[in-house]
Nucleic acid binder design. Structure first.
Lengths: 272, 272
DNA sequence: CCTATAGATGAGATAAATTCATCTATTTGG
DNA sequence: CCAAATAGATGAATTTATCTCATCTATAGG
């Protein structure tokens, strides 16, 4: 709203009331005594409306949180830890939806979301959860009886597993590691990280995955890192929700938990 | 504002709040518990705004009352009594304007008015001041050396004085008193009651006047009633002012005085 | 079973609010 | 002392919000 709009509105209000609310003093304005009194009264009333609106919107007993989550993050990070959150907040009910797209909150029932992206959402609150570093992973079975992989170039001897709409990831990683001319390599494409990881675990090839999201498979030896290189995607997972929207206590509980959990993991990783 | 507009606004508010305020029960709506709570809080706040606005608008020290008054009423009833009002409310300044038309307050600086009419003004507050009964009046000089006036028909032997735009008054009076065929009688027309009364006092003819407005002239013998008949015009003088507009203390003082004065006069008349 | 009615919806019209361009008068800095 | 910057105001144009109108669905009443 511009100063011009404010000036128009003040003029209209003074005309409507038949009372001068401001005294014009050269290039300044000052409230008149009636203006002071009116301000106090109206401010109080508007504060009450604001308070009542906040109370009504933040329904205290709304224990449901609707979450739209990037699928890889959902299945590989969140779901395994959900029990920890529930044990801390037993009365909160998370309603989880996997979605690869970045929903538009205006046309959605979702309360919060986990986006994978660059964090450029001016209309949203967003909290960094974790940066994404992609590393090549494959089944140990893939390498049995095969020459060891010692360089990025050696990766090309195998099937590269891509994820739809993220074709550039492999190319970026290879280029960063000295492989400049990449011919049409043998490959296959899946529509999601989960599917790609599943295929990799079956020994169908090598895919790229965020180390943190594949850590359980890596721990159990279902997947291994055949080469110690990684790609900084310049993208991250973020917790996002609408600006200007009061959070229920359940939403706050979830936000606080997930940020704290990420910090705890971050500390653990730094100690290793 | 139509039900349709209300429905739209309720829908928008519920969407904005993310809370259902009304429960739709077939063809009825009922407030939900959150709706009840919100209503109480918002109603209270809006009442405060309304109160603050009323207080700010009713500037306590505005001692001026602008009045637009039907001319006959002004000159013949109000002006003679103005001193009484001033003695009771010495700090109130009445600014009086004579106007035969019924002003439109939206386009006028007037605070209050005295209208002559039928009292059908739905957008205004109106208080009955007095009913208007017209009686024929003339100067005693007119009748000197002439046959006495014993019936309505005898009135036709004299010049009838009309007031512009109120031509039907004479005709109505005569018809009500048995004079059915009225030829084009000799007459003259003036633009106001005051002028007509002035002409009657000069012996130019007989005019119709409200008994109360001509009472001083009748008292002093400047005018007499040549025949004891009267016309109920179905119109009255009313004090009027805008609905929804807070009255200053001066306006209230004037309203209370004039209504009280009229009641006092009414009692006096009834005692006679 | 038909008519009337409450509430809701979408489109168009109207009203209100805001922005933009410009002005005047004052303040500030060189 | 003068030029540039700035606060507040104004009018016109644009944008947004609100309201009305037409219509619909489902229910109630005669």
């Amino acid at each position: 709203m511009t100063p011009s709009a404010v000036s128009h509105q003040i003029k209209a209000l003074e005309s409507f009331l038949g009372v001068q609310l401001f005294e014009r003093i050269k290039r300044r304005v000052a409230l008149t005594p009636p203006g002071e009194r009116y301000l106090l009264a109206i401010q109080s009333a508007l504060d009450e409306i604001d308070e009542a609106t906040k109370k009504i919107v933040t329904v205290p007993n709304s224990n449901i949180v609707n979450l739209s989550v990037a699928p890889a993050f959902l299945t590989r990070w969140l779901v395994p830890r959900i029990n920890h959150f529930q044990s801390l907040s037993p009365d909160v009910e998370l309603r989880l939806t996997a979605s690869m797209s970045q929903i538009d909150f205006r046309y959605s029932d979702m309360d919060m979301a986990v986006f994978y992206g660059d964090g450029n959402w001016p209309d949203l609150h967003y909290h960094l959860l974790r940066n994404v570093h992609l590393v090549p992973v494959c089944s140990p079975k893939l390498l049995e009886g095969k020459p060891p992989i010692k360089s990025a170039e050696d990766l090309l001897q195998h099937t590269l597993i891509h994820i739809s709409k993220r074709d550039t990831e492999w190319q970026s990683l290879l280029e960063q590691n000295g492989v400049n001319e990449i011919e049409n390599t043998r490959g296959m494409t899946f529509s999601s990280t989960s599917l790609a990881l599943g295929a990799a675990m079956e020994g169908l090839g090598i895919t790229l995955a965020d180390r943190g999201l594949a850590e359980r498979e890596l721990e159990y030896g279902q997947l291994i890192c055949p080469l110690d290189i990684s790609l900084d995607t310049q993208k991250s997972f973020y917790l996002v929700y609408q600006k200007g929207r009061p959070l229920t206590e359940s939403m706050q509980a979830f936000r606080d938990w997930i940020l704290d959990e990420m910090q705890t993991e971050q500390r653990s990783l730094q100690q290793l």
